[in-house]
Simulated scan of single mutants.
Amino acid sequence: MNTTTTIKTGVKKGSTIALGYIPIAITFGLLAKSTGIPAGITILMSALVFAGASQFVAVNLLQLHTGAWEIVLTTFIVNLRHLLMSASLSAKIKNKIPQSWIPLLSFGITDETFSFLSLTDKEKLSTGYILGINTIAYFAWVGGTALGVYLGQGLPAIIKNSMGIALYAMFIGLLIPSIKKSNSVALVSLTAVGISALLNWGPSFLQQISRGWKIIIVTILASAIGAYLFPEVGETIE
Rank of each mutant, 00 (worst) to 15 (best):
L104D: 00
G152S: 03
I217C: 07
I26M: 12
L155K: 04
T66W: 04
K181T: 10
G212P: 08
G128C: 02
A157R: 08
Y129N: 06
Y129Q: 04
G234I: 01
F205L: 08
D121H: 15
Y228C: 13
A227W: 13
V49R: 09
L44E: 11
L147F: 13
I179E: 11
V218G: 00
T4G: 01
D121M: 07
A25V: 05
I165V: 15
L117W: 00
R81G: 09
A224T: 14
I195T: 02
V193P: 02
N183T: 13
T191N: 08
G152D: 02
K33A: 15
L89S: 04
F171M: 12
F116N: 06
Y138P: 03
A53V: 05
N2A: 08
S189L: 04
I176M: 12
P231Y: 02
V193A: 11
I158L: 12
Y21I: 14
I209D: 02
W69Y: 10
I17G: 09
V149A: 07
A169W: 04
G154E: 05
V59N: 14
S182R: 05
V49S: 12
K160H: 02
S162L: 02
W69D: 11
S189P: 07
K160Y: 07
K122D: 05
L221A: 13
T5H: 08
K96Y: 05
Q99W: 01
I97Q: 01
A39H: 11
L199M: 11
I24W: 11
